[in-house]
Write a protein that binds this DNA or RNA. Structure first.
Lengths: 212, 212
DNA sequence: AATATAAGTGAACACTTGTTGACTGAATTT
DNA sequence: AAATTCAGTCAACAAGTGTTCACTTATATT
């Protein structure tokens, strides 16, 4: 029961690949037809049902696969990085490189985060929330932040993640080979993260702004 | 040439309304069919072509309409508000109320910002950029920020706008009548904006972080 | 070696889709 | 009052859709 199962996973993967490739060209997942996907995967439409009940199920599988892949990277990055400003600049850099190496996956996640069906959106939102909680845990280890309420740290972690996601959106709108503009985005992102951390360091529970 | 033109604009509007209502139920614009829209609008499919060349053109019209509507609000808010921490909390509150009063419009804009066709995305991105530049101009009037380079102020304005947009996304995922959760989102958003402004006040060109 | 399993095939189905062209009839212009 | 314009209708089309069923045939089980 090795050869047959292996071949099955192989065509299953080519269905996933076909779908994600089509999304990467700028189309939304909801606009893909089952027949199109099977055509690109080099398989007859009826074969689709040997792997997925319908397109929705394929979409969820796509989220699971890409997120699992992404989690690996994050986990690896968390263990190797040292804290401080260098960490910030360095990890944005490695992250952006990783994004470029996996454009279609991020394209899909970003597009369907708001644009997809309800279960798709939920699934992606849950993953993002997972990352955020991890990040909050990391931050809670630093001197200043360890003294703040859990909610406040999480609120800032959310802010950081949202900022990265926004930068991601800008990045993916560009063609792959614009190193200048990509550099500009990386710089802006790093600065934005700096502003947030700076604000976090000045933050105390119940803070109001000094101005006005 | 009054009555006829008036009736024409009327059915044109019912086409736009039908489309936006369908998007507000959770579907992506790309997945709407021309026939569905005309059906919901109470018109025969062929009539569609008296108003739009195709669905793409309707989509762009939808962006124009909703953004024009939004610009009015922003303009009104800009003139009436006074600076300071109260401004921050107050304007997020009025903004969130306005969002609730125009849910379908924001639903559409948010979904299609990343999920839509290329021209749709561009159009929305351009609008958002316009808001950001206005916001940067407002901020540049304050003591500390007036001494910063234009780019830095714009970078922070972008950060603020992105943060609001992210909160918007969370808000729209909820059913309309969850005042508790909506209050929580409003609080988090206000705090996040505070952190950013706080960071901005501590920011100087070429800042590195003190930590690490 | 005979049998059972199930991934992939091919043809057919009932539908929906976008687009067309000739039409009707009320609002407009002459 | 006659002629024109044109928003909306009706019918038809070719093309694409999701899903089904009986089928082949390589793999796995007995």
């Amino acid at each position: 029961m090795a050869i047959r199962d292996e071949k099955k996973q192989q065509t299953r993967q080519s269905l996933l690949d076909a779908a994600i490739a089509m999304v990467a060209t700028g189309r939304s997942f909801a606009s893909l037809s089952l027949r199109e996907v099977t055509r690109d995967a080099g398989v007859v439409p009826a074969s689709f049902y040997r792997h997925f009940r319908d397109m929705d199920e394929l979409g969820l599988a796509l989220v699971d696969d890409t997120c699992q892949q992404l989690r690996k990277l994050i986990r690896a990055a968390r263990t190797t990085q040292a804290p401080g400003d260098n960490m910030l600049a360095a990890s944005t850099s490695t992250f952006l490189h990783y994004v470029n190496a996996n454009r279609s996956a991020f394209h899909f996640l970003l597009r369907e985060r708001y644009g997809g069906s309800a279960p798709l959106r939920e699934s992606i939102t849950r993953e993002v929330r997972g990352f955020t909680i991890d990040l909050a845990a990391d931050f809670a280890k630093f001197p200043h932040f360890s003294q703040l309420p859990r909610d406040d740290v999480e609120m800032m972690a959310t802010l950081l993640v949202n900022t990265v996601v926004s930068a991601l959106g800008e990045l993916l709108e560009l063609p792959m080979d614009h190193p200048d503009t990509q550099g500009a985005i990386a710089k802006t992102l790093t600065d934005q993260l700096r502003v947030i951390v700076l604000g976090g360091l000045a933050w105390k529970p119940g803070t109001k702004l000094p101005m006005g």
